[in-house]
Amino acid sequence: MIKIAIASGKGGTGKTFVSTNIFYALTRENISSVLADCDAEAPNVLSFFRTVRKETHEVVQHVPVIDVSKCTFCGKCHEYCNYNAIFILPPSGIISVIEDLCHGCGACSVACEYDAITEKPFPLGNVNISLYNNSHPVIEARMNTGIMSPVRVIKEALRHIRHEAEIVILDSPPGTSCPFIQTVSQADYVILVTEPTPFGLSDLRQSVETLRTMDSKFGVIINKAGMGNNDVREYLKKEGIDLLLEIPYSRETAGLYSAGRLLAEADESFGKQLLNVTEYITGKYGNSNSQR
């Protein structure tokens, strides 16, 4: 099995476009594949495939519940909490949990010597597992509205990837912060999708710098080639980064995508190009690195 994350610093460069089309091309060749939508804040890969929902798992974290009749207001739970999630005013006899700030680490329960702290589940989101063509899982990480970080939901989604699959495609969240890192840290290879514009280049640079600190293997797909300028290509050459593919900008492609359709279905040669990319990656990084 090889896990390939599709990421980009900048939003809207075509991560999901590339992920869904690669997945489609792979499944068309009957290559056992999984597509995981790790963009838990705005998951949308399911809108491109007719799938059947098989499982739903709720992702919860545990927040403390304080039994004030047992509490001695010693303040130890507050002291243990790294996130200021326990508010305590001993002289007024007030103690409360600020659930928004709680990371669910459980330190307060350990701290309490008076059995005053129990835990209750606090829902963060869901992991939905569907099957495409009755055989290829599409895993969706979907966090609830108002939750601060999608990281836990992403982590849980990644846990559900079955190891029988030959190729796993991880559609990463945008940016280069925790959700991105959580996703790409699980990958054997990262495809960075960029566009040949100054914004694309600026965010590509950030992604490259982040991935280098993580010792990740990566290459770049330039989407919407033909717009902007040549700076991204020159940057890649200078940095010695693999340019895997250029996808020309076209209004028809954009139209197709926004109608929820796949270019690889309409244009077989595009599907072939994507298969060549995955063959190149699996050939070069497939076996040696799959233990990560």
């Binding site: 304080i66 002289p91 006899g93 108002g146």
Partner: peptide
């Protein structure tokens, strides 16, 4: 959102 303020029945320094 702040949930569940818990108060002791008889606060010692009520104001």
């Amino acid at each position: 959102m702040f949930i569940g303020m818990i108060r002791r029945p008889k606060p010692r320094n009520a104001g």
